[in-house]
């Protein structure tokens, strides 16, 4: 891993008795968008904080931009951008001042931050709110400003912790579009998320994390191919009708019984649906869809991602 921006081996983090990260290996290459997918409490944010050099590791080795965070924290932080899970914009400052003051923390000269702030406000589509206070901005606007702020030092590596949690669909898509633009411009990104659609949209490669360990690693397509079938048949039955699970297990490759529905994994969903009908199975509703990372996660952990 000569060109790896981040390299972790047996990385661990504990808080007292509790082990949040229990020995993970991670390699992030320059230019890629790398994802940590997992439910809340999987250890994603703890890992991100260690990479961001704001949380000392409890064990293992970690190299960020070729340096050790324990020794060269300030030097590493000078070259990365961080978008935390919760917006921590400076509420005593305006939109423009937030960007300018943040640039000064990186030691950028006054003229440069002034210029940069204008550029970034355009990027975040906040130019018309330049001199407005931060507090009344909408959630999506605050998020965009936080991302713009993280770019003030032209980072080589951008860390995004749950970038679209709590945003409405429109705001999410706008944000994804901005992140995609950054990727095209060559900014390496590490994203944590518990949304599988976000991971599929953004990530070139990802790891599925659960309980502090990595359960699987690959591109979204690879993971789906490896851990799931091409299609999924989702069936719902009325509460008083027992689903013929035994028959289904024989016809489908795999069956997951969830509280509200059954997931039948198969290469051809329509075909399976027809075969079930021939066997007299009458579900309340049936839906054929492509497999997603959600199914990968279910397969790997036996649990849903978002519950």
């Amino acid at each position: 891993m000569g060109d790896g921006l981040v390299q972790a081996r047996d990385l661990r983090k504990s808080f007292g008795e509790f082990e949040a990260v229990r020995g993970i290996d991670v390699d992030v290459a320059r230019g890629e968008v790398f994802g940590f997918l997992g439910p809340n409490g999987a250890g994603k944010s703890s890992t991100m904080r260690m990479i961001a050099c704001v949380s000392p590791r409890s064990g293992g080795t970690l190299q960020v931009l070729g340096m050790d965070p324990d020794v060269d924290g300030p030097r590493i932080r000078a070259r990365i951008g961080v978008v935390p899970q919760l917006d921590n914009l400076d509420q005593e400052l305006t939109v423009r001042e937030n960007l300018q003051v943040y640039g000064r923390y990186f030691g950028l000269p006054r003229a440069r931050v002034r210029e940069k702030a204008v550029e970034l406000m355009q990027f975040a589509q906040l130019a018309d709110r330049a001199d407005a206070p931060v507090e009344p901005l909408s959630g999506g606007m605050k998020r965009r400003l936080t991302i713009a702020r993280s770019l003030v030092n032209d980072p080589e590596l951008l860390l995004l912790d749950e970038p679209t949690t709590g945003l409405d669909p429109q705001a999410r898509h706008l944000l994804w579009e901005r992140l995609y633009r950054l990727k095209r411009e060559g900014v390496t990104q590490i994203v944590t998320t518990h949304y599988m659609d976000e991971a599929e949209q953004l990530c070139d490669r990802l790891v599925v994390m659960d309980g502090g360990v990595i359960a699987a690693e690959g591109s979204p397509a690879e993971l789906i191919a490896r851990y799931s079938t091409r299609e999924v048949l989702e069936l719902r039955f009325p509460p008083d009708v027992a689903a013929p699970v035994e028959l289904m297990t024989r016809l489908a490759e795999r069956v997951e019984v969830l509280p509200d529905r059954l997931l039948l994994y198969t290469a051809d969903g329509e075909h399976l649906q027809g075969e079930l009908a021939r066997n007299g199975v009458r579900p309340q509703s049936a839906l054929v869809r492509r497999s997603s990372l959600e199914d990968v996660f279910l397969r790997l952990t036996g649990r849903s991602l978002v519950d």
Partner: peptide
């Protein structure tokens, strides 16, 4: 107007050293 109209140099990051 994009964030950067010019292509990124190989190694980006601020040219301000940390003392």
């Amino acid at each position: 107007m994009t964030l950067r109209d010019v292509p990124l140099p190989d190694v980006a990051g601020p040219d301000v050293p940390v003392p």
